[in-house]
C-alpha cells in the first residue's frame, strides 16, 4: 500500500507540470527515470480499469513489489527531492486517482466540494451539541441512579425530621386540651376542634349573659302580681339564678308568667353531673308542681322548657 502511494506521487510530474527543478533531475536519471514513468502510467491505467475492491488490493500488492525492485536502482535523495516538488495544482488529479483506487463506483459517498459555508467559523457547542455523546461519557444514565439514590436517603431523613416535629406538636396539643384522652392523631385533632368551638361558644354565652341579667331584675315584679304569699319563693329563685352566674357557667333562665297559677321556665345551661337533679330540687323548693318538661340539646348544651303550676296554699 505504501509503495502504491509512492508511485502515485509521480503522476503530477509525468503530466507535464511546469516544475523547473524536476526537469534537470529527470534528464540526469536517463533510462531509470523512463522506467519509472512507464510503471506509473501502467498503475494509473490498471487502477482505472479495476472493477472491484479485492482486485484493487491485489493490484496494489503487485505494483508494490515492482516498485520496490525499481526503487533500488534510484538514489533515495533523488526520490525525496521529486516528492518535495509536488505542488497543490496537482491535487485534483490526486483525488481523481484516489477515487478509483479506494472508493468503489457504487459508493453512497460523493466527492466533497468546498462551499462558502465551510469558511465560516463553527459556533461553540451549547446544550444541543454532541448531545448523546456527552450523555454517554457522562455515564449514560447510570449516573442518574446514583444521584437518585442519595436523594432518596435525604428524602427519608427529612421526612423523619418532619414527623418527629409533628409528634412533638401533637404531644403539646394533648397537654393543652383537657378533653383529649385518645392516643391517635385524628382523635386529637377532632377533640381539639370541638374544644375550640366550645371555647368560642363560652365567649358568646358570657357576652349574652350580661344581657340576660336585666330581665332577671324584672322577675320580682312579675311574681308580685301572683300574690304576696310567694315573696319568699321569689327571693329564693332570684338567688338561684345569681348563684349560677357566680359559678361562671354560661347559663340562662327565663321565667314567663302565663296566668295566676301557671308559669313557663326556659333553662339553658351546660351539662354537668347531677344537673337535672339539682334543677328539679330547685323547682320543688319554689313550691312549684311540674306539669310538663321538654328537653333538647342545642349545640351540646342542655335546654329545658318546663311548664309548672304554683302549689295552692289551701
Amino acid at each position: 500500500m505504501k509503495k502504491l502511494r509512492l508511485s502515485i506521487h509521480y503522476e503530477p510530474i509525468s503530466s507535464g507540470t511546469p516544475s523547473s527543478p524536476s526537469s534537470p533531475l529527470t534528464k540526469e536519471t536517463g533510462d531509470a527515470n523512463t522506467v519509472l514513468i512507464d510503471d506509473l502510467f501502467l498503475a494509473h491505467s490498471d487502477a482505472i480499469l479495476a472493477g472491484g475492491d479485492q482486485e484493487d488490493h491485489q493490484l496494489g500488492n503487485d505494483l508494490g513489489q515492482q516498485q520496490a525492485a525499481t526503487a533500488m536502482e534510484i538514489d533515495d535523495d533523488m526520490i525525496y527531492s521529486l516528492i518535495r516538488n509536488w505542488d497543490n495544482d496537482s491535487s485534483s488529479s490526486w483525488i481523481e486517482l484516489l477515487d478509483h483506487v479506494v472508493v468503489s463506483p457504487a459508493s453512497c459517498f460523493v466527492p466533497w466540494k468546498r462551499t462558502e459555508l465551510d469558511k465560516q467559523a463553527v459556533a461553540g457547542g451549547g446544550e444541543a451539541a454532541q448531545r448523546l455523546l456527552k450523555k454517554a461519557v457522562g455515564g449514560g444514565g447510570a449516573w442518574m441512579n446514583r444521584a437518585a439514590g442519595s436523594s432518596i436517603k435525604n428524602h427519608v431523613m427529612s421526612e423523619r425530621r418532619r414527623w418527629e416535629k409533628l409528634n412533638e406538636m401533637f404531644l403539646t396539643l394533648k397537654s393543652l386540651v383537657p378533653s383529649i384522652d385518645k392516643v391517635d392523631k385524628a382523635s386529637s385533632l377532632a377533640e381539639t376542634i370541638a374544644y375550640l368551638k366550645e371555647l368560642e361558644r363560652r365567649v358568646q354565652e358570657l357576652e349574652s349573659g350580661k344581657k340576660v341579667s336585666r330581665p332577671a331584675k324584672r322577675k320580682p315584679c312579675s311574681e308580685r302580681i301572683i300574690g304576696g304569699g310567694d315573696a319568699g319563693a321569689v327571693k329564693e329563685h332570684h338567688h338561684w339564678v345569681l348563684s349560677e352566674s357566680q359559678e361562671g357557667t354560661p347559663s340562662n333562665v327565663r321565667v314567663i308568667v302565663m296566668d295566676k297559677d301557671e308559669l313557663h321556665l326556659e333553662v339553658h345551661c351546660r351539662w354537668k353531673e347531677l344537673m337535672m337533679t339539682r334543677l328539679f330540687d330547685a323547682i320543688k323548693s319554689l313550691r312549684l308542681d311540674v306539669l310538663s318538661v321538654q328537653a333538647s340539646a342545642p349545640n351540646g348544651l342542655l335546654g329545658l322548657k318546663i311548664r309548672a303550676k304554683v302549689v295552692s296554699l289551701t
Binding site: V102, S107, W112, R114
Partner: peptide, 18 residues
Amino acid sequence: PATPGAVPAEGIDPVMVY
C-alpha cells in the same frame, strides 16, 4: 498527507462526504 509536513495552510479537505 503522506508526509507530516505536507499539511496545506488552509487545512485538509475531506475526500468524500455523505
